[in-house]
Computed example of a mutant assay.
Amino acid sequence: MKEVQLLLEKYKQGSITAAELERLQELSLQPDAVEIIKTDIDTLLQQGAPDSGWQPADHPEILTYILTQPTLKATRSWRNKWLLAAACLAALAIGTGTWFYQQQRPPAIVAQKAKPIQPGSNKAMLVLADGSTVALDSANLGQIARQGNASINNNGEGITYQTNGKASTIVYNAIVTPRGGQYQLGLPDGSRVWLNAASSIRFPTAFAGKERRVEISGEAYFQVAPNAQQPFFVTVKGNKTMDVQVLGTSFNIMAYPDEQMITTTLESGAVQLLHAGNKTQLQPGLAGSLNEAATFDVATADMEEVLAWKDGKFRFRNTNIQTIMRQIARWYDVEVSYAGDLSDVRLTGVISRRADADDLLQILSATQRVNFETTNNQIKVKPFHQEQ
């Protein structure tokens, strides 16, 4: 891991570039890199960290500020900053490749259970035009079915549709991911789709006519192949009056039934949100949410948080515990209940979606804001101060 050591030295000297900092943050998710960083910090701690004059309760916020600066300029005091970061780290419980911060509080307790709850994986079900189903997993590779003049192929990471000649009959297929599943597919026009857990997409085996139209539920990320003569439309299942009109672009749409709003977030290109005669154009970096008044609220999006699921992460920024637990419930296929007042619990951090639920709950508990009790696939969330 010489790359980590080199980037660490640049980081401490203040000469690291934005691209190098992003690379260091990516590498910090790997266990080997974490050990190198801890060793570096231990060495500095043995040399003695400076007395900053700040209280221990301030350490988490200070550390977060130091380690999340977008660009760093070299200064004579940078070694002292790194030593201060080391002192702060010594006062925190740090999970592998994960950081969370909150004010210092009495330790929380996580109930032990015999069998770990495993994270989700790449799995889905293909529903063919006649209603028959095909399991989509690594055990079912190669050509798995034919629909009209289209062959359906599974490469282990997702499926693609390959058409031969003009389709004589248009039929519809669907991909459905369960709770604890995710999947990728290539549509007949070359567009790519990523499905999150507990989601679905229905689409034709060939796009004919003046438009391309698909229907989704849950959450999906699209990279749409450009074709100005055949615009792309996404309809939300159960809400036939709303459409997302697309040319060539990448965007995320979240439409889970247990979320308050349907939200479309644009990464690149342009989309137009349509509902009951209302039209709203989105620019990259913006999100549009259909509210209860049947109009769209548009705001700047936190793209890293929105797209974290697609990149294999949970990312929270001052996110309430109920929203966090809904994501956990869908990915780990668990049932969540609550006890006590959790209305003020909001957390910030990033965790790999590859972590077992036990590890994830331990990390959340390290914030000293919440406790968890787990029984089989049941998780109860309680405030940290509630009697066990």
Results as ranks from 00 to 15, higher is better:
T205H: 08
P116K: 02
P106W: 05
C88Q: 01
L141K: 15
S121R: 15
E157F: 01
V171G: 04
M254A: 09
Q272V: 11
L185V: 08
P50E: 08
Q103F: 03
A108E: 02
G285K: 04
S250G: 13
L21A: 07
L195F: 02
A135I: 15
V127W: 02
K73P: 00
F222E: 03
T375G: 08
G190P: 02
S343K: 15
S352D: 15
M303H: 05
S52E: 04
N164K: 06
S132A: 13
S268P: 12
K210R: 02
D311L: 13
F233L: 07
V246N: 01
R353A: 01
P106F: 10
T295F: 14
M254I: 00
A57C: 06
S343D: 09
N377D: 14
A49N: 06
K237Y: 10
D137M: 05
L274Q: 11
I379Y: 04
I324A: 10
P56E: 07
L185R: 01
V214S: 03
Q5L: 04
A19T: 04
R192H: 08
G53D: 14
A299I: 14
A301F: 06
E157S: 11
T265I: 10
V244M: 08
I216Q: 02
I262W: 03
A293R: 15
T96K: 03
L360S: 02
A114Q: 13
S352Q: 15
L195I: 00
C88K: 07
R212F: 01
T160A: 10
A33L: 03
P284T: 03
F233Y: 15
K380D: 04
V193R: 05
Q229V: 05
T163Y: 04
L347R: 01
G238Q: 08
V336R: 12
F316N: 03
G142A: 05
G277M: 04
L27A: 12
V336W: 07
Q184P: 09
N155H: 07
D51I: 12
P107I: 00
A270D: 03
T280C: 01
W54Y: 13
A139F: 06
E292I: 07
I216G: 04
S217H: 09
Q378G: 02
R146M: 10
Q182E: 15
S132K: 15
N164A: 08
Y161I: 06
E157T: 13
E267C: 00
H59C: 07
L45F: 02
E157R: 05
Y332A: 07
N291D: 15
T75C: 05
L89I: 06
I41C: 11
D243H: 13
R346G: 01
L286Y: 10
L290S: 10
I36T: 00
F100K: 00
Y172L: 09
L67I: 14
K123S: 10
I16R: 00
L274C: 14
E22W: 05
K313Y: 15
A124E: 09
A287V: 09
D359E: 14
T71M: 12
W78G: 06
S28L: 14
R354Y: 11
A145K: 09
I109F: 09
A93L: 03
K310V: 00
G288N: 10
D189H: 04
V127M: 05
T280F: 01
D58I: 00
Q162T: 02
D32S: 07
K382V: 04
F100I: 02
V350N: 06
S52H: 11
Q182S: 14
A301H: 10
K380I: 15
Q223N: 12
